[in-house]
């Protein structure tokens, strides 16, 4: 480590008359000041999210899953395997379903790692408005996730369509890229809200994985029981089948459409994020 310079040198630039005046009024900094805004918080959160490795890793895994599985499917199948009337774009579903996992992990980590490391105290000392901190985190994370997912889904859709052919409509293309990316960003945001509420990485990630998988697993178990109503409900509204909606595949008849799926996830995310905003203002850190 280098020898620290003396603090006197650091502040030596303050002129003599200024210093005299300070003697009566306390210290006045030569560093230019202005009020901090949400824009500053966004810049700060952007620096944070791009400067930790977990961001890179989670998005890398997500891209590998979405693109890798899509490419494998494209290689394994040939044009003749495609059922008539089906679009190859729909085959991107599996990769995205798995790709949700790293996105949720990152969503949770974005906030819970601050609590885990103690960074949150430094963060909130710098920005005492907890709402602004959480808001900036949510915006930066959601925007980044949307863009990365859009790149991934657009690429995989193009690969599938190019190699397997088949016809696709503009609407299906739109849902399978923009729609899915918005949905994935919302799930990520939901995970971020859960992370903010639990403040514990492992706990929140486990909970989110359960949230995605349990309803479907439960529905499969219920197949043998007479509770068909519940089974149908679980099948219809489980995350995998909601995601399937964007690809025009659905596990049960009369399942909700793309807008409805976005609405449900958006509502759920809004409620939990709202709860996180409410709760964090009342807790000690």
């Amino acid at each position: 480590m280098t020898t620290p310079s003396t603090p006197q040198a650091q502040y030596g630039s303050v002129s003599a008359p200024e210093q005299q005046w300070q003697a009566q009024t306390g210290y006045v900094s030569p560093v230019p000041l202005r009020r901090a805004t949400l824009k500053d918080a966004l810049a700060s959160e952007w620096t944070k999210i791009r400067s930790v490795r977990s961001t890179l890793w989670n998005f890398a895994v997500m891209l590998a899953l979405v693109l890798g599985i899509g490419t494998l499917i494209a290689l394994a199948l040939s044009r003749r395997d495609m059922p008539p009337g089906e679009s190859a774009v729909a085959l991107g579903f599996v990769g995205v379903l798995l790709g949700i996992m790293p996105v949720m992990t990152l969503g949770v980590m974005t906030i819970s790692s601050e609590y885990g490391t103690g960074m949150i105290r430094t963060t909130l000392t710098a920005c005492p408005s907890r709402a602004r901190v959480l808001g900036a985190k949510a915006i930066v994370f959601a925007a980044l996730t949307f863009v990365v997912t859009l790149v991934a889904t657009t690429l995989v859709s193009a690969v599938l369509l190019f190699s397997l052919g088949g016809r696709t409509t503009g609407a299906l293309w739109g849902w399978a890229t923009v729609g899915v990316s918005a949905y994935v960003a919302l799930i990520g945001l939901f995970a971020l809200a859960v992370g903010a509420l639990l403040r514990h990485s492992a706990g929140a990630i486990t909970l989110m994985i359960g949230f995605v998988l349990l309803p479907l697993v439960l529905a499969l178990f219920l197949a043998a029981s007479p509770m068909h109503g519940l089974q149908d409900f679980l099948l219809e509204y489980s995350i995998p089948s909601q995601l399937g909606v964007f690809y025009g595949t659905s596990m049960v008849q009369g399942a909700p459409g793309g807008w409805e799926a976005l609405g449900i996830m958006g509502g759920l995310t809004a409620v939990f994020l709202g709860l996180a905003f409410f709760v964090q203002d009342r807790r000690d850190v």
Binding site: L33, A36, A43, E45, S51, S54, T122, A126
Partner: peptide, 18 residues
């Protein structure tokens, strides 16, 4: 956050206050 460099740690703090 231990995963962040000293520079980036201070940078994100500086940015949050303009």
């Amino acid at each position: 956050h231990g995963g962040r460099s000293a520079y980036n740690h201070l940078l994100c703090l500086a940015q949050s206050n303009g």
